[in-house]
Amino acid sequence: MNKYELTVVVSANVEDEVRVNTVEQVKELVARFGGVISNVEDCGKKRLAYEIQHMKDGFYYFIKFDADAAAPAEIESRIRIMDNVIRFLIVKEEA
């Protein structure tokens, strides 16, 4: 298994409950494709470097997980179509 870090930026224009549900959906996706989450870090609301879809702020989450090599591609394809996620990135951590 490889170690990965998933960064998710959730829209600041949604209710708190919707934001929490969006993060839960992302965590369920990781688990569905064989990932084992080791840490979820909520960094709160931060200013974006540039406007994305007329938004200037977003809520940042960092999710560390272990998974097989095929899992990140599957997770990315599902996150890409989520409405409230404005940006995401999965990177493999060095051993």
Rank of each mutant, 00 (worst) to 15 (best):
F62D: 00
D83N: 06
I81A: 11
A69E: 09
E94W: 13
A70T: 06
V8C: 03
V8P: 01
R19V: 14
D42I: 01
A73R: 08
A67I: 06
S77W: 08
E5R: 01
V30H: 05
D42T: 01
V20W: 15
V9S: 01
R32W: 02
D42N: 07
V85Q: 12
D42H: 00
V85P: 04
C43T: 13
A95G: 01
L29F: 12
G34P: 02
F62V: 04
M82H: 11
L89Q: 13
A70N: 12
V10T: 04
E51S: 09
E5M: 07
R78D: 07
D66T: 15
N84F: 12
A49S: 11
V18Q: 07
S11P: 06
V40A: 03
Y61G: 00
V40F: 06
Y60V: 02
E76N: 05
N39E: 11
A71G: 12
I37W: 05
I86P: 09
F62S: 01
G35R: 14
C43H: 15
N13R: 14
I37H: 02
G44E: 00
E41D: 14
K27I: 07
V14W: 08
S38H: 08
M82Y: 15
V14Q: 09
E93A: 13
I86K: 15
I81T: 11
V9E: 07
A69G: 13
A71F: 13
A49V: 06
Y50T: 07
I37M: 06
I79N: 02
A67G: 02
N2S: 02
E28V: 07
I37A: 02
L29K: 07
E51L: 04
A67Y: 04
T22L: 08
N39W: 13
I79L: 08
A69W: 12
E17I: 08
V40Y: 00
F59P: 04
G58S: 01
Y61Q: 01
Y60S: 00
E76H: 06
K3M: 04
V10L: 05
I52H: 00
H54K: 03
R32L: 13
V14L: 14
V8W: 04
Y50H: 15
E15V: 15
K3E: 06
D68Y: 01
S38Y: 11
K27Q: 11
D42L: 07
I79E: 14
E5Q: 01
K92Q: 10
R32F: 11
F33K: 10
G44K: 00
F33P: 12
K92E: 13
E41V: 04
A12Y: 03
V91M: 14
R87H: 12
E41W: 00
N21K: 06
Y61N: 00
A71D: 03
R80C: 03
V23F: 03
Q53F: 05
G35L: 14
H54R: 10
V18E: 11
L48N: 01
M1S: 07
D57Y: 08
T22D: 00
A12V: 07
L29Q: 09
K46W: 05
N21S: 11
Y61M: 01
M1E: 07
M1H: 09
T22H: 03
K46M: 02
A71Y: 08
F59E: 05
I52M: 15
T7R: 08
D57K: 15
I75F: 00
E5F: 02
K3R: 03
L6I: 10
E24L: 10
Q25P: 07
V8H: 03
V14K: 11
R80W: 14
K45R: 06
K46F: 11
K64E: 03
A95W: 10
D68V: 12
